[in-house]
Design a protein around this nucleic acid. Structure first.
Length: 333
DNA sequence: AATTCGGGGGT
DNA sequence: ACCCCAGAATT
């Protein structure tokens, strides 16, 4: 069965030679031990649940923004059963502005599944982790490695970039993670379990601190002497440029504004907070405050398309507001 | 394989 | 303005 490298000669999947690989497998864990940041989910006393929470929060979200939310979260819900029993509105408010709030909903669902099906213990097996809501290939591998010390192939944006540069001389990995790339990277993971964990953690940390996307600090890199990309003169990104969705004027922007209104509000007054994704609508049996209704009306006045506002608000807060406002979604003006 | 899902800080 | 960030789920 030919892989993409044989089908497309322009794609090179060069691996480091045996000697070089052996050197990297010593350098990376060593560098990690010396240079790693002291993050709370890396402390020896952090539970597997704490690691899982961190991995979910860190999806597409920088470490510095996760830190305070993670601390609050773990203090409030120190075990899966605690989160599983929490009201959805509390969960979403505690998520604050981390973004992608569906992650919070799925984390709560995962907590319930862990409580019901796994005796309250975070699974160690990657397939079992992968079966939990919100946990994909990356997160399953990361939890297996960092929560349980298991050998796995962790491939996040950092590791993919470091390996693309050091081993293949490319400025950036392909836009999509292929099976070819996965198998290629899996073959580089050290056999020894304990070493493999520091390999995964070290490559990730290297990508976050040194081999960064924009201004890599190659002079501080333990792989500098062997780096194919550096040796080639750090050729610029071939820029796959996947053209991004514009932000201003999109449904996402408006949804974010509505979500901010729902998240805020007077703490003394019961309030609702509901979020939906394609998979459905989550709700809490509370009502909106007058100030929240007024804020929504303000958003509506700013939005030139009332039908679109209706669609966004309906998607976010479902039938609840419609019941409180029998005339469709007519809000106080 | 392409889209959509937030939000904020760096450049 | 644009890029990037410990991705996942859906179409």
């Amino acid at each position: 069965m030919p892989n993409s490298s044989t089908l497309n000669p322009s794609v090179r999947w060069d691996s480091p030679g045996p000697g070089t690989l052996r050197r990297w497998q010593a350098l990376i864990p060593g560098w990690f031990a010396a240079e790693a940041r002291d993050l709370p989910w890396r402390r020896p006393d952090c539970t597997p649940w704490g690691v899982l929470v961190s991995e979910i929060m860190l999806q597409q979200t920088p470490v510095v923004r996760v830190l305070p939310r993670w601390e609050d979260w773990m203090r409030r819900w120190p075990a899966p059963a605690d989160l599983a029993a929490a009201p959805t509105g509390d969960v979403l408010r505690a998520w604050d502005r981390l973004g992608y709030p569906r992650r919070a909903l799925r984390l709560k669902e995962a907590a319930a599944a862990i409580t019901a099906r796994h005796g309250g213990k975070v699974p160690e097996d990657e397939a079992e982790l992968r079966a939990l809501p919100g946990i994909g290939e990356y997160t399953a591998a990361a939890v297996a490695a960092f929560a349980h010390g298991r050998r796995s192939t962790v491939l996040d944006t950092n590791i993919r970039r470091v390996l693309a540069r050091a081993a293949r001389g490319e400025a950036a990995p392909p836009p999509a993670l292929s099976r070819t790339e996965y198998r290629w990277a899996a073959a580089l993971v050290p056999e020894d379990e304990a070493v493999s964990v520091r390999w995964n953690a070290g490559l990730m940390e290297l990508g976050a601190l040194v081999c960064t996307a924009r201004s890599p600090r190659c002079t501080a890199c333990p792989l500098a002497a062997d780096c194919t990309w550096l040796a080639a003169g750090r050729p610029g990104a071939e820029a796959p440029t996947v053209r991004k969705q514009t932000w201003h004027g999109t449904d996402r922007q408006l949804r974010g504004a509505v979500l901010a209104v729902l998240r805020a509000g007077d703490a003394a007054v019961p309030r609702g907070l509901l979020v939906s994704g394609r998979e459905g609508t989550a709700s809490v049996p509370e009502s909106l405050t007058e100030s929240q209704l007024e804020a929504l009306a303000r958003l509506r006045r700013l939005n030139p398309d009332p039908a679109r506002m209706d669609r966004i608000v309906t998607g976010l807060i479902g039938d609840r507001l419609a019941q409180e406002n029998p005339e469709g979604l007519t809000l106080p003006d």
